[in-house]
Design a protein around this nucleic acid. Sequence first.
DNA 1: GGATAATTGATATATATCAATAAATGCTGT
DNA 2: ACAGCATTTATTGATATATATCAATTATCC
Lengths: 257, 257
Amino acid sequence: MILKEGIVLKEINFECFRCEKHNDNCEKTLNCCCKNCFKSDDTNLLKHLENNELDSIVEGKQQIRYKPGETIIKQNTSSTYVICVRDGLAKVYVEGIKGKSLVVRLIKKLDFVTGGDLFNGNVQRFTISAVTPVTCCLINTTKLSQLFSENNRFAVELLRHHAKQNNALLDKLVVLTQKYMPGRVADTLLYLKNDIFKTNPFSVPLTRQDLADMSNMTKESLVRILQQFKSSNLIKTDGNTIEILNEEALQEISKNG
Amino acid sequence: MILKEGIVLKEINFECFRCEKHNDNCEKTLNCCCKNCFKSDDTNLLKHLENNELDSIVEGKQQIRYKPGETIIKQNTSSTYVICVRDGLAKVYVEGIKGKSLVVRLIKKLDFVTGGDLFNGNVQRFTISAVTPVTCCLINTTKLSQLFSENNRFAVELLRHHAKQNNALLDKLVVLTQKYMPGRVADTLLYLKNDIFKTNPFSVPLTRQDLADMSNMTKESLVRILQQFKSSNLIKTDGNTIEILNEEALQEISKNG
DNA sequence: GGATAATTGATATATATCAATAAATGCTGT
DNA sequence: ACAGCATTTATTGATATATATCAATTATCC
């Protein structure tokens, strides 16, 4: 089954005994099934949906694999999908002025991305591309609004999700415009450790350019700040592995801007 | 009626013949009545609500007047209000690091602001303060979610509104981090002319500091750019009156960063 | 007429740019 | 599997520049 040029939907013929939907390897992993996936997380958008309601949106869902570097959603194209990541890491970024990119967010397992123009023309306002191999589900939004009347807790959940995204953007706006470079790099490092990888040390499948795009600076500047942090014994790096040695100090640097 | 220290609700004893709600001067202006107000604009959040549905949220509504400089919503305080501006101009800004403010948006007649943490703890993530005398309605959000099941078009409308805010923030993020000062000032000027005042010349009830906070720079830098624009005959200023003489050139400057 | 806001100039500094090198990564063919 | 070459990525240094800061003056507004 070919969706669009280059992207081929993996044929799924496995019958999942738990959700009664087509699935791959569902019995073994227990997290590949849509209903499990959707329901397994407290912050999950779809947690309030009843089984039959889930069925209606799961039905048209497409589960796709992307190789590192591949584009999942392209800025300024129209699409009516909500993305749910099942596995892997992807970056959400704005392609800005003169080729500059601004990484707004990293997304990983169970993260949802509801597009910029949801119910509003459906033009995507950012690009999402796979950092590691990514498996994700594309859920068609056209069915979402039908659910609102049946289940108003779902509408509330979706609004909450949007409100959170709004807050995150507002925070980012302040951080990127009002903090000096060391503060921004500190924020990026703490974000990676505490929100994304949740281990220490952690191995980052991102280039220095990516880290710079997250921190709104050039790669050269990022490297220099990283060196400063290293010589101050705040962090230790070995290639793409970063260890945070003094989190309090980084928090302090973040606070001071 | 005293809401909180310093803010006194004006007593309203006028009976509006069109909406049968309490109101002031409704017959004369025809735009002060909630239902008119809510329904008079195409982009209005509440346009899909039926009369009885509107009644339920209008009932607990508070209509308040603010003097220039007064705070309508204070960042980091909890409130469950959605703001609807009936008259005047207010600025929505984030109080950032080391006393720096970032004006995210100006709001005027019929604009809605749904708070940062709607359905999510209700902590406001920005401050709103009156620039001119402002009359606005505070609508309690606790009643909003009840309407979703009755009227799913309303939920869609609210989501659309949030999606738009998201896009605006994303745009602002790019503009403020990737454009040089002239580009940012050009954007601010075009925003004032085309989105806010819709006349040319227009009289801006904002200080240079406010304009600088909108453009993410110091007031000194803003003044200098304004002088540059003046000596290039792109604009003409007389105190707080600004006339845009060459919009195409400003668009070009905006584009080039 | 005193406070606040606007303007202008001189200087400092954070950060980008340019350029050169070093290290890693991927590919090719054997 | 591995050496060797090509390509990308990372690092470091020297320099340029956008922008902030500081200071002084002028205009504006209650």
